Every structure is written in C-alpha cells, then in structure tokens.
Simulated scan of single mutants.
Amino acid sequence: MSKIHSTAIVDPKAELDSSVEVGPYSVIGPHVRIDAGTVVGPHAVIEGHTTIGKDNKFFQFCSIGGAPQDKKWDGEPTRLEVGDRNTVREFVSFNVGTVQDEGVTRVGSDNWISAYVHVAHDCQVGSNTIFSNNAQLAGHVQVGDWAILSGFVGVHQFCKIGAHAFIGMYTSLTQDVPPYVLVSGNPAGARGVNLEGLKRRGFSREQLDGIRSAYKLLYRSNLTLEEAKTALLAEEERLPAASADIRLLREFLGTATRGIVR
C-alpha cells in the first residue's frame, strides 16, 4: 500500500524512499530528496533544492525549503540540508541559502524544533539542539550542538551560539554566546554556566569545575577578551580533565565576529 496519501501532490521528479509517509494535502516539489523512515504530516510544503535524511517527523503546516526572505535572492538554486531523526513541529519554516554565503542552510540531526520556529537562509544548526516555541533565527546564524533556545528567543543575523549554551525566554541576541554559557534578559547578559544541562549530559565533576573556572576568567576577572584567551590557554594546561572543554570555549572566542555577550 502506498504511504503517500491520495490528496498529496508529489512531483514526479522528487526522490522519496519507498518508506516515506506523506500526509493529506501536502506538497513535495521536484528538487526534493527524502530518505527512509521520514514522515511528512498533512498540509506540509517541502520545496526548493532540499535534502532530508532518515526518520524525521514533520508535523502539519510546516514550510520547508522555501525561498529566502532576502531581497538579494534572485532565484539561484541554493539548498537546504536536514539530517536525521529531527522532530519539526507545526508551522516551522526552514529557508534555503543564498549565494552571498555558502548557498546552503543546514540543520543537523536529533534536533527538537517546536512550533512556529523560523530558521532563515544560510543558518547552520548543529545536532541535539532544542528550539522552544517561536524561537527565531535571522540569516547566517550558527547554533552549536546541544544548545537550547527558549521560547520567543530572537537572534540577530550573523550571530553565533556555542555548543551547550542556554538562551532564556524572550531574550534578544545581538552578540555571540560562548559555549556552556547561560544567557537571558534584554539586553542579553551572561548569568552563569549551563550547569544543569551539562550534568544531564554526563559531564564529570572535573569537567564542570574546569568550565566554571574558565567562565570566571572570561566574565569575572576584569580581563580584556585577548587577555582572557591567554589565560584560558594556561587553564587548558593546568586542568587536563577539562582541557578539551576549555579549548572549545577558547577557540570559539577566536571566531566571534559580533563580540560576545558579557
């Protein structure tokens, strides 16, 4: 029995694994590829040059692979790539990229994307993230693995959010957020280390102590950013159990282009 509902419109050129399910009244465009086990709910639209991996679940009324909300876009065949095992809830929108960047928007694997989330053109979203309802990414935003965006978070274009960061509800981000840092408020401010999240992910006591020590150097030692980078390098050598975690933080600081939330 076909797993594509009789009322769905699937372009003959689309490439769908035989196990893909497509619900009533959904529309799948000609340049779409969907791998095994993925379920597309009713009234969803998947278009553009879009590649979707395995075992994803798209709920009703999603808009996936649509044109960028960018006046510079002129119909170029830019792309959207979505990984595996993502849950994408109602009214979520993912846009394809633009030629002003890499030309591709990417969403990794094992992400939980709640209702009304928007991922704009050229965003790069890692894996195991959580986006609560109405979290909004402008263009060219980067989000690291395991980051959590609470409800109604708004992220300015070109901002970067590091791995394991936590962004509190209603926060408006206009600067980069380093890994492990908990940020909230308007204007956004650093409130500490995302300890609860790190504990849930099995970070050891030694790792947590090292990350807290690095946070104090960055945020509570009255050091300039360059001085903090030097101090963090010394911490890597002093705390071998947390050296990889501190290195991740230090290397992120070297890529921050909008300044960091402090």
Rank of each mutant, 00 (worst) to 15 (best):
Y25N: 12
Y25G: 05
Y25S: 09
S26T: 00
S26V: 01
S26Q: 01
S26I: 02
S26P: 00
V27Y: 07
V27Q: 11
V27N: 10
I28P: 01
I28F: 01
G29N: 02
G29P: 03
P30S: 13
P30D: 14
P30H: 08
P30K: 11
H31F: 13
V32Q: 02
V32N: 06
R33L: 04
I34C: 01
I34M: 04
D35C: 15
G37P: 03
G37M: 10
T38C: 11
T38W: 08
V39R: 11
V40F: 08
V40T: 08
G41Q: 07
G41L: 03
P42R: 02
A44G: 10
A44P: 00
V45L: 12
V45K: 01
V45C: 03
V45R: 03
V45P: 00
I46N: 01
H49L: 15
T50E: 08
T51D: 11
T51K: 12
T51V: 13
T51F: 10
T51Y: 15
I52Q: 04
I52F: 10
I52C: 05
G53V: 09
G53R: 00
K54A: 10
D55R: 13
N56Q: 03
N56K: 05
K57I: 14
F58K: 02
F59A: 04
F59L: 10
Q60L: 11
Q60T: 06
F61S: 13
C62D: 11
C62S: 05
S63D: 08
I64Q: 07
G65H: 08
G65E: 05
G66A: 15
G66P: 07
A67D: 15
A67E: 15
P68Y: 13
P68V: 13
Q69P: 11
Q69D: 08
